[in-house]
Design a protein around this nucleic acid. Structure first.
Lengths: 335, 335
DNA sequence: CTGTTAGCGCTTTCAT
DNA sequence: ATGAAAGCGCTAACAG
């Protein structure tokens, strides 16, 4: 397609009548360059429409200025929301992001983490619970890793940026209890995050003298649907459901619908993550806001810090969680 | 972080007792390499944990084996659905994808297209209507471009992969008409795609002898909400709404809800794109399936074809559209 | 079949 | 303040 060869730093140098190195200095905004040369070079750059070749740059500096973002399922809106804060912050410090949907990549063969390393990413942020623990372990010896919204893989000395899952789940559960619910079921999710949320739920229940009921589920809508369907079909069905995340909660919403249970009149449902799905007025899901933006921002900060600093200790940043009450929760039906 | 220097092809060569080039040949699976050498090299590779440096490779071959994917808003589930088919297909031919959310990138300064070119992508696929026409024009002289789900920018000789928008919108509209609706409003979206869908709507309306009513909207939930709110608040409000896409339709759903109109009893709503949002049982949106997967697949095929072939003519692939009836449409209320 | 020799476009000492 | 030269890790002719 190219009309001519695309101009290189060498062409610019020739045109400006200077050396390659000088151009490089100007490009990098080095202060010790005479004004005359600087403008000459800048002119040449404009005239030729020069664009720096990041690939060559990366090879030379052994710095790609790219970070890998590993996530599980782009269809989970929480990931997408987080991505916004994450990439925006990374961009501002000159880092671009290489997104890898680990499920998709793995399916067509090839380890997602390996792919990132081959591309010489300067660091990796793992978003949410993924299934690449083994490879991440190895990767951690090569590049800094920060975990966003997950604790796994643990023990790598990576930084961890999460919300207060115990707190959030507690708030969700207590909200139901305060509304008068005594039969509240929890749809548990995967990973340590799943455990913490379960823990929050259990704590709230036992403090209220209620019996916890936990149903294992997943992080997708389907799994939420399946789990909720089972729970709600029972004769002693709960009057409230605290789900692992919004997706699962929406699955629960569907399950309720299919069983002819009205929400919130017959059954209350609480999600987690406060994604835009929850805000869709037509769903209007009560959900726990886990500070998605703040998480993305902090993860980006810490990663870039590690990339050009030498931070070695694993830090944990815990963003507060807060409940957002919408229209899927209310007092239980009087039986 | 690195324990030692990460091994290069040179280290492998030394360890296997051969030359760099021989290793390169083995890596590339060249048939003309003696079995003995091949195994020796493979062993060395394993032992050292060698990983090819794609950056160096790209510089040498002037082929990054990466394609840029330009899109507008990751929160639009259609993009995400399309991405699945697209990246999966690209991976199978050895191309990785560099995702760029053009809105985000632009916000933090810097042209998304330029960024891609600097990274030496071998091609670009534009997903949906974006706002980078000018830059894409320039980029088109450098790398092949294929448009997926959009016609813009036009006249670049790019391939275009779309669904049959006129047909789809016609089907959506006729569905309403057949249900008995006589007052059907269309929420128009942006770009040529928006025009085509409007055209399909208008055609169906006039063939049925009905008066078309078109309200300008956007492609987001908010804009759909705003547009629908206006339309449905009128005294002569429509009994059916054909939206530009699912997101807008969901906005319309919310608007109806806010106005105490039941869906579908008081007002029917049809979306477009048949995203997973439409399939959420609790929304259960009647929507036009535009063959998202097929579009992604074809776009990937054509792009890779252009990258290593020399196809020059702009081709158009039009995937058939089909209506999926769910629970947001029914006969109009008898007035 | 295998090794040698140049680069790819940029950065980076090190002189000047 | 500026230039020359030596790489970064890989591929690509070209010899042998």
């Amino acid at each position: 397609m190219s009309t001519a060869r695309t101009p290189t730093i060498r062409d610019v140098a020739a045109r400006a009548g200077v050396s390659k190195s000088l151009v490089s200095l100007v490009l990098r905004g080095d202060p010790g360059v005479s004004e005359a040369r600087r403008t000459a070079v800048s002119r040449a750059i404009d005239e030729l429409g020069y664009r720096t070749n990041r690939v060559a740059q990366a090879l030379g500096t052994r710095r790609s200025n790219a970070v890998g973002v590993l996530l599980n399922d782009l269809r989970n809106p929480w990931f997408v929301d987080l991505l916004t804060g994450l990439t925006a912050t990374l961009e501002t410090v000159g880092l671009s992001t290489v997104l890898v949907d680990s499920a998709t990549t793995r399916r067509v063969g090839g380890s997602p983490v390996d792919k990132l390393l081959q591309q010489q990413v300067d660091g990796i942020v793992v978003v949410g619970t993924t299934e690449d623990d083994e490879e991440l372990r190895r990767a951690a010896t090569l590049v800094p890793i920060v975990l966003a919204g997950t604790y796994e893989p643990a023990g790598l000395g990576s930084d961890v940026v999460v919300n207060d899952d115990v707190d959030g789940a507690t708030a969700a559960t207590e909200h139901c209890i305060e509304l008068g619910h005594t039969s509240v079921t929890h749809l548990r999710g995967p990973g340590h995050v799943g455990e913490l949320r379960e823990q929050g739920y259990r704590g709230a229940m036992s403090r209220a003298g209620l019996t916890p009921v936990v149903v294992p589920g997943g992080m997708s809508e389907e799994s939420g649907y399946a789990a909720a369907r089972r729970a709600l079909a029972a004769t002693d069905r709960p009057t409230a459901v605290v789900a692992y995340n919004d997706l699962a909660a929406i699955g629960a919403l569907s399950a309720a619908h299919d069983l002819d249970l009205r929400v919130p009149e017959d059954v209350s449902i609480v999600g987690y993550d406060n994604t835009y799905l929850a805000t869709i007025r037509h769903l209007s899901l009560t959900s726990v806001d886990n500070g998605t933006m703040a998480i993305g921002l902090q993860a980006a900060r810490w990663l870039s810090e590690r990339i050009d600093g030498g931070v070695r200790t694993g830090r944990v940043h815990r963003v507060p969680a807060s409940l957002v009450v919408r229209r899927t929760t209310s007092a239980p039906p009087r039986s």
